[in-house]
């Protein structure tokens, strides 16, 4: 069990915003910047902003989740960490599962916090904010899982990996977006429940898909 704790500690030190060794606030600033720009682009129409603001928060959250992908796994493969873990009998699946947890912790809760000031910027009311927050709680683990899967599939790519992984994440994230942001217009619990269900399935698949992709890249 201590191997798990050691790996998680290293991952958190690398990914949490504000930690000395490179975790970054940039995705959060990006998220806030989108929320800030939106009213400028749409114009000061309170009804229109209130109707569309929740959806914009969702799109901004999705894009912010893509930003850290290029350094999620590739650097560890290049530096030989996965080789050394494999020799010590630490399965790729376990490393990827821990990485998924650390990746989510480094942006999910912070996005939920940032959604509060963002909701003021796009002018949505308290009830809508509540649904957005529950939706983010249900949806961001799924976004993190998609991110980890794509990051592990693009691990072997020498160049252009960052842009390509961003492009690959978007279609996979469509179901989460439809049900997550869709729950805003219907106000329904059903949409949120479906978002959570998709997230759960993705989180369950991610360690196995990711582990297999990293092993395949090693053979290449």
């Amino acid at each position: 069990m201590s191997a798990l704790a050691t790996l998680l500690k290293r991952d958190l030190a690398r990914f949490l915003p504000g930690t000395a060794s490179g975790g970054t606030l940039l995705p959060l600033l990006f998220f806030m910047a989108v929320a800030m720009l939106y009213p400028f682009a749409i114009g000061p129409n309170p009804t229109l902003l209130a109707q569309t603001g929740g959806g914009v928060i969702w799109v901004a959250a999705l894009l912010a989740a893509i930003l850290p992908l290029d350094r999620l796994l590739a650097s560890d493969v290049e530096a030989g960490f996965f080789d050394q873990w494999a020799l010590r009998g630490i399965a790729e699946e376990m490393v990827v599962a821990i990485r998924l947890l650390a990746h989510w912790l480094s942006f999910g809760p912070f996005l939920m916090l940032a959604a509060i000031p963002a909701s003021a910027l796009v002018g949505i009311d308290g009830e809508t904010l509540r649904i957005v927050e529950i939706g983010l709680l249900a949806g961001t683990p799924g976004l993190a899982a998609i991110g980890v899967i794509i990051a592990s599939v693009t691990v072997g790519l020498r160049s252009g990996g960052a842009a390509l992984s961003g492009l690959l994440v978007i279609p996979l994230a469509v179901p989460l977006l439809i049900f997550g942001a869709g729950s805003l217009s219907t106000g329904g619990e059903g949409g949120l429940a479906l978002t959570a269900a998709i997230s759960l399935a993705l989180v369950a698949i991610a360690p196995f898909a990711g582990g297999a992709a990293i092993r395949a890249a090693r053979e290449g």
Partner: peptide, 24 residues
């Protein structure tokens, strides 16, 4: 295995980078 990849965190002080492995 010792190869051309040191498997040490580039941005960390050497002591901490080695401490990660000594914990494992």
């Amino acid at each position: 295995l010792l190869d051309e990849k040191p498997a040490l965190d580039e941005h960390q002080p050497l002591g901490e980078a080695l401490a990660f492995w000594s914990a494992l």
